[in-house]
Design a protein around this nucleic acid. Sequence first.
DNA 1: CTAATAGTGTCTATTAGACAGTATGTT
DNA 2: AACATACTGTCTAATAGACACTATTAG
Lengths: 277, 277
Amino acid sequence: MDEKDYASEEEFLKDYDSSQFEKLSLTADMAIFSVSSENPNNYRKLSKKKFSVLLVKRTTYPFKNKWCLPGGFVGIDESIDDAAERILNRETNLHNIYMEQLYTFGDVKRDPRMRIVSTAYIALVDKNKLEDCLFPNASWFSMDILEDEKEIQVSFDNGNEQFSVIISKVLKSPTSDRYQYIIKKDNHLAFDHAKVIVSGISRLKNKISYTDIVFNMMGEYFTLGELQQVYEVILGKELLDPAFRRIIANKVEKTDMVKTGGGHRPSVMYRYRGHHE
Amino acid sequence: MDEKDYASEEEFLKDYDSSQFEKLSLTADMAIFSVSSENPNNYRKLSKKKFSVLLVKRTTYPFKNKWCLPGGFVGIDESIDDAAERILNRETNLHNIYMEQLYTFGDVKRDPRMRIVSTAYIALVDKNKLEDCLFPNASWFSMDILEDEKEIQVSFDNGNEQFSVIISKVLKSPTSDRYQYIIKKDNHLAFDHAKVIVSGISRLKNKISYTDIVFNMMGEYFTLGELQQVYEVILGKELLDPAFRRIIANKVEKTDMVKTGGGHRPSVMYRYRGHHE
DNA sequence: CTAATAGTGTCTATTAGACAGTATGTT
DNA sequence: AACATACTGTCTAATAGACACTATTAG
């Protein structure tokens, strides 16, 4: 409230003088998540759900031939959200995809060429809507996630290529739940995108239990078994049927369709109920 | 996985050509929160806690004489976190303050002069540690928050000046809990800082129940009544004593100190227990 | 019939909400 | 003594976890 000596006023103004600060480049990077199904080896069994992410193979240096999240520069006359949407549409040919800002990664050396800050987003899609129209060099990788107190290991697989990354987590403060991620092993992903993916997974894992974002990855109709599998694959643990059904009971509504053809009891198809009770 | 026609490959490369994209300025803005005490009018009563934020009066255009969050440009050789810490230290003269990235605000017209993207942080301090060393033009404003389904009203007061802002909230998606904030009334805050403050409050409100971040706003020793008041003022509702004590029971530990002097039964002083059970 | 999933009933443990009561300082 | 807060006991409601059971299909 009260003013101080001139010296610190000077410093104050210096801090606010933009000409002292070089401008930098900003990109929007998209972690586009989905669930895919693996065909069962037994006619009775259900197809196995896999949590997956869309990666793009880089064709230029730096990180040539490494995989990265789709992204692009934010234009000077374009909001970050608009840039994110533009990139999302470029990759998926779809509009109105669920998307939210994740985090802004601003380490100085994250791009070896020059200073590039990246605002990362996560997006959730129903993979079946776009299976056939992939952007050049893009590929869906299923992820197997192994997490404990200290580190996270993610194994990627797109059918042709497999690799895994290991990231260790350190609590930033004992009072919070924020982790600092440190890449321990990563020979196949470009930039700090391993961190971005892990942050995105963590965000999703948290939000699945108190929001309805899962339904962005489901088709319009689904069985409760399928829905449960998606929860399980994201949470990385099995759920008990009655508990699961209690939790999602008022989020979904029955239809009169039934899914038959598995060597077992048919399953009623449900639909997302939206936000009215 | 499979490649597409040349045209889209071209487009792909265009998107990755940085020379097509002008660079922009990035600032780090700090929403520094704390709780302050108002003196009671009755010798028996406890001092009333107020949730407060540190604002700075602008001395230059644009938004001359309006209040804004302390902030500054991110240097080209400085990480965003480092810039945030630098600003935090400039304002408080303290190191090791709790701080976390909140959100990156990237609308095109948020600064009337030029394109400036802002990565906002929240920081939590114990106000008593720095009461006397305020940076020029800085002032603590207590906030009264009135929130319903559709909008949030925040009334600011620093003892000399009072004003209020009204912000309406619109769910970005029925499947999530993310709001788009729209400023309805704001004649005293610069830029989009009203949105930043409201986002920060919302973040804090959420995290208080599943993390220990409150303790960053407490002194080393405190009574459970004081702690409860801080919870209440942030959550905007009253809590029942037994429930509150159950919840924080294993986060704090008793000391052998006692706070006397109020016209009522003395209160045992507690201390934050850290992260070991 | 069998393997595999679909779906329900119910018991128990844990947690959250509510209220009433006791305790103890200052003026 | 009276007020205001400190602190505890306990009942109840709601929720989460666990298990056992029944149902129904393709092959």
